[in-house]
Amino acid sequence: MNIADLVFVGFNRRVAALRRQNGEIVWEWKASHGASYVSLLLDGGTLIVSVQGYMYGLDAATGNQLWFNPMKGFGTGVTALVSLHGMSSNPLSAAAAEQAAQQASQSSNAGSTST
């Protein structure tokens, strides 16, 4: 599954990847620590997840957990996530990322067709 075909949602320490075209759940994951609000950031092929001060890295295509960091001493609350690829709280970055994914998809489709 191409991650450009997915939309990621988080509720109450749970995360799901939905098929962009029809909303079908592709994979689900539940945090082992923390409760309530979930912050998400797609950073390349890794989905960074924060749940009440606990940090997780998931494989965006499969939902498999790659890493866990309890962030001891940092406290809890709503998390702001930033990477070279975007920010969790900036809808303009999300729109730019989607446009880049669409362009990449169109380029790869154009390269795979024969004339």
Results as ranks from 00 to 15, higher is better:
Asn2Asp: 06
Ala4Phe: 02
Asp5Thr: 00
Asp5Tyr: 03
Asp5Trp: 03
Leu6Asp: 09
Leu6Trp: 12
Val7Lys: 04
Gly10Gln: 09
Arg13Gln: 15
Arg14Ile: 03
Leu18Cys: 07
Leu18Gly: 06
Arg19Thr: 08
Arg20Ile: 01
Arg20Glu: 00
Arg20Cys: 00
Asn22His: 03
Asn22Asp: 13
Gly23Glu: 03
Glu24Asn: 04
Ile25His: 08
Ile25Tyr: 06
Trp27Asp: 02
Glu28Tyr: 00
Glu28Gly: 05
Lys30Leu: 05
Lys30Ile: 02
Lys30Ala: 03
His33Tyr: 02
Gly34Met: 01
Ala35Asp: 02
Ser36Arg: 15
Tyr37Gln: 12
Val38His: 04
Val38Thr: 07
Val38Tyr: 10
Ser39Phe: 07
Ser39Asp: 09
Leu40Ala: 02
Leu41His: 01
Leu42Met: 00
Asp43Trp: 00
Gly44Asp: 02
Gly44Ile: 05
Gly45Thr: 01
Thr46Arg: 11
Thr46Leu: 06
Thr46Trp: 03
Gln52Val: 10
Gln52Arg: 15
Gln52Asp: 15
Tyr54Lys: 15
Tyr54Phe: 15
Tyr54Gly: 11
Tyr56Asn: 00
Gly57Ser: 11
Gly57Cys: 10
Leu58Phe: 08
Asp59His: 11
Ala60Asn: 01
Ala60Ser: 10
Ala61Gln: 14
Ala61Val: 06
Gly63Ile: 08
Asn64Thr: 14
Asn64Gly: 13
Gln65Phe: 10
Leu66Asn: 13
Trp67Leu: 12
Asn69Lys: 07
Pro70Val: 04
Lys72Arg: 14
Gly73Leu: 02
Gly73Arg: 03
Gly73Glu: 10
Phe74Trp: 13
Gly77Arg: 07
Val78Phe: 08
Val78Asp: 05
Leu81Ala: 08
Val82Trp: 10
Val82Gly: 09
Val82Cys: 09
Val82Ala: 13
Ser83Lys: 04
Ser83Ile: 06
Leu84Arg: 15
His85Pro: 08
Gly86Lys: 13
Met87Glu: 14
Ser88Glu: 09
Ser88Tyr: 05
Ser88Ala: 07
Ser88Trp: 01
Ser89Phe: 08
Asn90Asp: 13
Pro91Glu: 14
Pro91Gly: 14
Pro91His: 12
Pro91Cys: 15
Ser93Phe: 14
Ala94Pro: 06
Ala95Lys: 06
Ala95Gly: 06
Ala96Cys: 05
Ala96Gln: 09
Ala97Met: 03
Ala97Thr: 00
Glu98Trp: 09
Glu98Gln: 08
Gln99Asn: 12
Gln99Pro: 06
Gln99Tyr: 13
Ala101Ser: 09
Gln102Ala: 10
Gln103Phe: 03
Gln103Trp: 05
Ser105Asn: 15
Gln106Thr: 14
Ser107Ala: 15
Ser108Arg: 10
Asn109Val: 04
Ala110Gly: 13
Ala110His: 13
Gly111Asp: 13
Ser112Asp: 10
Thr113Gln: 08
Thr113Lys: 03
Ser114Pro: 10
